[in-house]
Nucleic acid binder design. Structure first.
Length: 421
DNA sequence: TCTGGGGTCCTAGGACCC
DNA sequence: TCTGGGGTCCTAGGACCC
């Protein structure tokens, strides 16, 4: 058996741990720049507030106090997540951290007679007591089924635990699962399946293999097998190195200010390079992209991008920023106003040997050591304490965050400020 | 006025190799 | 007139996930 355990309305639940007066009230958490809604309490869901709603659409509700909104506080959610995952680890060594709020748990070595319902309730109780987060858990023989059972636990089981350990229970679960809620079937395929009168997971698994293979690729077929209880996906532990690292931001306002965007690109590159070094990789390519505002009527949407092949793989912020700015020069069009900019590092390889180019500049070997020192200083003295000059002075990347809660679990200075009042 | 950020995998087609 | 067979690598676009 696998289990999929996740925190209910995770970001909202994190906020509630530190302010219990939020219990029972409609609460939402906003994305970067307080742009859209990315988490909702059950009460907010019941008010009909959809995922992804722009914040300005619910502004009146927030200002009148009918809806409580928080800016996102990833330092808090990340820390709460780690604590929750540690509790999961007390029940089985097989924990795959699948996202910030959910994990697959491996119970394949457990005796068949195990009472998984009771085990699930145990996990739930312990997380609730020690971390303060309500969780839901679904048990089943494959990961895709465990996902479906987790949804059933959340929607239909007051105890927050659902188990499918017999063919009959699996069949029943498939009938209860709308096809659009199956893990691996997204919006496009769901719409197409519904046109074919396929509305539930039970109906989906009745489709012939070659029909699925042709229209939904090998992935669709894997989903079918998993729903039938034939495991395709194994537990994945440890963090595989990223194959791409991307940093991008939406600006608070559209901008044509070249210097501003130049600093932003340099900064995004520095942030991405830091992640690159943290996982011990070098990058071979850097892509810079610019986007105009897709919601503007009078200007057609433009997405510009340019990729530079670096003369040698590197993780030096200095080298990467140099080529990022060159890429920006290539695509910059002064007549446009940009809403979003970003960079992406690809062609990642483990640090070690690298192929050099006979006719192009050689790497500066001193950078490696310099970057190590910068990273170490920034770790102890605070992010961005030491910067490359091109990153400018903290203006390009500032987010609008009007409603962020304190970083309760990681920043003493913020806690002390509250209690000083 | 105001609309997020960061990833992975698969397929088809082109360019190239012997 | 008739024009093989087998492979790799790269890229863009689509679909999916949180």
């Amino acid at each position: 058996m696998f289990a999929l355990a996740d925190g209910n309305n995770f970001y909202v639940s994190c906020e509630r741990v530190f302010d219990p007066s939020l219990e029972g009230r409609p609460v939402v958490v906003l994305s970067n720049n307080d742009g859209i809604i990315i988490a909702r309490s059950n009460e907010a869901k019941r008010m009909g507030i959809a995922m992804g709603t722009p914040a300005f659409r619910v502004r009146k509700l927030i200002e009148s106090g009918k809806l409580i909104a928080f800016s996102s506080n990833y330092a808090l959610y990340g820390d709460m997540s780690n604590r929750m995952m540690r509790i999961f680890g007390e029940f089985t060594p097989g924990v795959e951290v699948y996202s910030i709020d959910e994990a697959f748990l491996d119970f394949r070595g457990f005796p068949p007679a195990t009472d998984f319902k009771a085990l699930g309730r145990d996990i739930r109780r312990r997380v609730r007591r020690y971390i303060g987060i309500p969780v839901s858990i679904g048990f089943a023989p494959t990961k895709t089924l465990a996902k479906a059972l987790n949804r059933i636990a959340k929607k239909h089981m007051p105890g927050g635990v659902a188990v499918a350990d017999t063919p009959a229970k699996i069949r029943r679960a498939l009938e209860m699962t709308p096809v659009e809620d199956v893990w691996g079937i997204g919006r496009r395929h769901a719409a197409r399946l519904q046109r074919q009168a396929v509305h539930t997971a039970a109906e989906f698994v009745r489709l012939p293999d070659d029909w699925i293979r042709k229209r939904m690729s090998i992935q669709g077929l894997r989903t079918k097998y998993e729903l039938l209880g034939r495991p395709v996906w194994d537990l994945e532990q440890g963090i595989p190195p990223r194959k791409a690292i991307r940093t991008a931001r939406t600006f608070v306002q559209d901008t044509s200010d070249r210097d501003f965007v130049d600093e932003a690109i340099a900064h995004f590159t520095a942030v991405a390079a830091e992640k690159l070094r943290a996982q011990g990789s070098w990058a071979r390519y850097i892509t810079v992209f610019l986007r105009t505002n897709r919601f503007r009527r009078h200007q057609t949407y433009q997405a510009l991008h340019f990729t530079v092949t670096l003369p040698y793989a590197t993780s030096s912020s200095i080298v990467l920023i140099h080529y990022a700015r060159e890429a920006l020069r290539r695509i910059w069009r002064p007549e446009l106003a940009y809403k979003k900019a970003g960079i992406m590092l690809t062609g990642l390889q483990p640090q070690g040997q690298r192929q050099l180019d006979l006719f192009r500049p050689s790497p500066d070997m001193k950078h490696h050591r310099l970057m190590q020192i910068i990273d170490r200083i920034n770790l102890t003295e605070g992010r961005h304490s030491v910067r490359i000059a091109a990153q400018g002075r903290a203006r390009a990347w500032q987010l609008a965050q009007m409603r962020r809660s304190p970083r309760y679990t990681t920043r003493w200075d913020e806690i002390l400020r509250i209690y000083a009042h």
